[in-house]
């Protein structure tokens, strides 16, 4: 890596101004992804602005019944937070199924959202990658695609977003609080990450210099019975092949509401709106659950090497919903 300057920022506005003014400056959070990428040569900043000591790092209840999570909160602290464990178990589970205890102790909430794809071609700077070098081509097509997208991909990029936490936040309808040069704004979690289209180099809608300061969760009582199911090759310490975050509001044997997001299948956490629509008002039989899953995956387009993923995604979604419904029934 090339030499860079390091500065510890004292306040968010100053940090934002510094980074926004320098196209080669970057924020440094827990470092678990950025330091990794510095070594691989994926990024080449001339200035790192350390924001770990200025960002809020706790969970606080909001007047509207929701909660606000500080962007500097470490993944392990967030997963262990009593309020999150009780009211949003899907988020706790998603965090705990990601990475390792050591990494979770370092990684921050904001940084987790901004982690970049694990595509092996993205990570090897000697190979073409549109995400790393726009216009250079996508090496994943015709290559190793086991962890690649089946939904919402483009001819320019079939990478997936690797975060587990983001999948849970997407299902929970979280809002991301962003500080920019023109002040604070709020971005829906489902809108934060982009589909690749013809600009896969842009993972999110954020602009250079934007700093995530917090994530807010809405009051969602039925999320108290939610779950995260991660399917991966290793029993632990591995990225998802497919994951499902789901919460179901079931009363009188009918699904009133469902919140579902899929991981490991797209360039962003994939909010399963079609499945949710199918389930709304339905009785949760094996057939309706399966129909909902199939509706969501109707547009799935695997590539050579990941043909199994639509079936895996469908089955995992059905199994997760089945387990949730069963849990509701026996409660």
């Amino acid at each position: 890596m090339n030499p860079f300057d390091y500065r510890r920022a004292e306040d968010a506005a100053g940090a934002v101004a510094t980074v926004a003014a320098d196209p080669r400056a970057m924020f440094l959070g827990g470092g678990t992804n950025l330091v990794d990428h510095l070594k691989l040569g994926i990024v080449d900043p001339d200035l790192l602005v350390d924001v770990t000591r200025l960002l809020p790092d706790g969970v606080e209840p909001l007047p509207d019944g929701g909660v606000r999570i500080g962007a500097g909160m470490r993944n392990s602290d967030l997963a262990a937070d009593p309020l999150i464990r009780r009211r949003y178990p899907v988020l706790s589970q998603a965090l705990l199924s990601g990475a390792s205890g050591q990494l979770r102790n370092a990684a921050t909430t904001g940084g987790n959202l901004l982690q970049r794809t694990r595509c092996v071609y993205f990570q090897d700077v000697t190979m073409a990658c549109n995400k790393r070098r726009p216009g250079s081509g996508c090496s994943a097509f015709g290559g190793y695609t086991r962890y690649h997208a089946i939904l919402g991909a483009s001819e320019h990029c079939i990478a997936t977003h690797p975060s587990d936490m983001a999948v849970a936040l997407s299902a929970l309808d979280a809002t991301v609080v962003v500080q920019g040069t023109d002040g604070e704004r709020r971005v829906a979690m489902t809108e934060l990450h982009r589909l690749p289209g013809d600009a896969p180099e842009r993972d999110t809608v954020l602009r250079h210099g934007d700093l995530i300061t917090a994530v807010e969760l809405p009051d969602l009582p039925f999320a108290a019975r939610s779950r995260y199911r991660k399917v991966r090759d290793r029993a632990s310490y591995a990225f998802a092949l497919v994951s499902v975050a789901a919460a179901v509001d079931l009363s009188d044997g009918v699904i009133r509401e469902a919140r579902i997001a899929l991981g490991g299948v797209a360039h962003k956490p994939w909010r399963a709106t079609r499945a949710e629509a199918e389930l709304r008002g339905a009785r949760p039989t094996e057939e309706t659950l399966r129909a909902a899953a199939e509706a969501e995956l109707a547009e799935a387009r695997p590539v050579e090497g990941n043909e199994f993923k639509p079936t895996l995604a469908r089955n995992t979604l059905v199994a997760t919903l089945r387990d949730l419904v069963e849990e509701e029934r026996t409660r």
Partner: peptide, 13 residues
């Protein structure tokens, strides 16, 4: 006091 991976933390931080 917390376990972390020393390889992913910059010394300066």
């Amino acid at each position: 006091g917390r376990r972390i991976n020393g390889c992913l933390v910059l010394a300066v931080a």
